[in-house]
Every structure is written in C-alpha cells, then in structure tokens.
C-alpha cells in the first residue's frame, strides 16, 4: 500500500466520521424547522398559553428562559473566569492545585439532576430564595462553571508568556498585565466557553425542575424572586404530561427554543469577533 493511498484512506474515514456527527444534527435541525415553522406566529411568540396549553402562545416561557440564561451568565462568567485566572496566574503548581483541577473536571460529569437537588437544598431552602429565577440561575451557574473554568483556563494558558514578560518589564503590575494584556488576548476563547455554557443552560431541564420552573404560569415573572415557565421544561411537559397536545405546538416550541439559543449564540459570536479584530489591531 502506497503512502498516498494510506493518506487517502485515513482522510476518507475521518470525513465519514465527521459526517456521522453532522448529518444527524442537520436532520434534527431540519426536522424541527420543517415541522415547527408553520406554528410560528406573532400570537404564538407573544401570547400566553390558554386552554391547558393546547392553544395560545409561549411568551412567558421565552422570557423565563432568557432571564435564566442572562442570570446564569452573570453569575457563572465572572466566577469562572476569576477561578481560571487564579489557577493559571496565581496558584502554585502543586498537588493541591492539581486536585482542584481534577475536581472541577469531575464536576462537569455530575448528572444535572444532582445539581437540581443541590440547588433545591442550598438556594431554594437553606438560603430561602424559594423556587425562583435567582435560584434557577445560581443552580445553572454551578452546572456550567466547570465548562467556563476549563475553557477560560485553556484560553489564558494559550496567551504566550512573551506578552506577560513584555508588560511586566515595562513596569506594569501583575494585575495590570492580566487585565490589560492577558484577558483581552484570551477573550475569544473565554467567550467560546460561554457559548457552550449558554447552550447547556438553555436546554437544561432537570436542574431547573426543582429550583425555578413552573408547570403552568400564564403571566410574566415580576422579579427574579418569582417562579417562571421555562422553554425546555415546558417542552418536556407538553411532550409527555399533557394528553392531546397538538404536534405543531411541540415542534413550534422546540423551534423557538433553538431560536432563543441562536440569538444568544449570535450575540456572543459578535462579541467574540469584536475581540478577535481588536486583537489584530
């Protein structure tokens, strides 16, 4: 077998594997779009559910999901990036740091319902936040922290040391160096982590079940201390708990959930590109 053939063979296998990943995803997307697009109307998006959720819109759930995403990012991003900065720039490289790193990695593998129970115990009951957007956001923050920390850590580590040295040699302090040089250079990578986190948080059901989600609450939440309907949970309910639910509403809801996540992805990507361009400038 010639070298050329081997290379072609390997390339083909890799291409096939990639296809195996992309095609089902594309299929799911197209299926949801194809079946859901007919349901989308102003009334569906901006209306409240009526007649046992079989008619009307899903606006309260859209607002619920958006509040949760924003809340989650507000808590998880500063905490996660801060942890990553500490681990990379300040912590001594010893056994303890390694253990912490390993623990964070393990947290990423904890089932989300466990986070839900943790959130119920800590935020809802012990701290008395009740079943609320605040409790839900904090619980989801814990859930996505490992993702944010790990991707921020990788992004900060990948900033070449020559930049840190240049900054320090100019008489900048360590914090100035991190804030002015390292973080801007690491920002695209950090935002990539945030995007992954948003996706995870928006689709999560088990973790919010016990901490924020309302089964049926056909009005908008009036504060972060209020319960809320949430798209993912709503989708779960109408798909499995409500008999006689029209398929169109299920598919429409799924499509809206995709759309909401898409909006946040888009916003994050714009910020990411802005930083990338700024880094080149």
């Amino acid at each position: 077998m010639g070298k050329k053939f081997k290379e072609k063979f390997a390339f083909t296998i890799l291409a096939l594997i990639t296809m195996c990943v992309i095609i089902p995803a594309l299929f799911i997307f197209s299926y949801i779009i194809y079946n859901g697009i007919g349901t989308i109307s102003l009334e569906f998006i901006f209306g409240s559910p009526t007649k046992g959720m079989t008619e009307g819109g899903i606006f309260p759930a859209i607002i619920g999901t958006m509040s949760l995403i924003v809340g989650t990012i507000v808590f998880a991003l500063p905490l996660g990036v801060g942890t990553a900065i500490y681990l990379v720039e300040y912590a001594k490289k010893n056994v303890l740091t390694k253990l912490i790193s390993l623990a964070i990695l393990n947290l990423a593998g904890v089932p989300s319902v466990v986070y839900g129970l943790f959130g119920l115990g800590l935020f809802v009951l012990l701290l008395g936040f009740g079943s609320s957007i605040l409790s839900g956001s904090l619980t989801l923050s814990c859930l996505i922290l490992p993702i944010i920390i790990k991707s921020s850590e990788a992004a900060i580590k990948s900033v070449p040391n020559i930049y840190r040295e240049a900054s320090l040699a100019l008489g900048a302090t360590k914090w100035q160096t991190i804030y002015k040089i390292v973080l801007p250079a690491a920002m695209p990578g950090i935002i990539t982590g945030a995007i992954l986190g948003i996706g995870r948080a928006a689709g999560e059901t088990a973790a919010i079940l016990l901490t924020v989600a309302a089964f049926f609450l056909p009005r908008l939440p009036d504060s972060i201390m209020d319960q809320a309907m949430v798209l993912s949970y709503h989708l779960y309910i109408i798909s499995s708990q409500v008999p006689g639910m029209p398929d169109a509403i299920k598919n429409g809801t799924a499509l809206v959930l995709l759309g909401v996540v898409g909006i946040f992805f888009f916003a994050a990507t714009v910020i990411r590109i802005k930083y990338k361009l700024a880094n080149r400038a």
């Binding site: 040295e165 240049a166 040699a169 040089i181």
Partner: peptide, 14 residues
C-alpha cells in the same frame, strides 16, 4: 521603569 528591556523575539502587544 528605570531599567527597560528588549527581548530576543519581537513581542509587540496585540
């Protein structure tokens, strides 16, 4: 600030 430094590889900031 009193003792400036220039490095082996040019390392202008981004």
């Amino acid at each position: 600030r009193r003792v400036g430094m220039v490095f082996q590889k040019p390392n202008p900031f981004l």
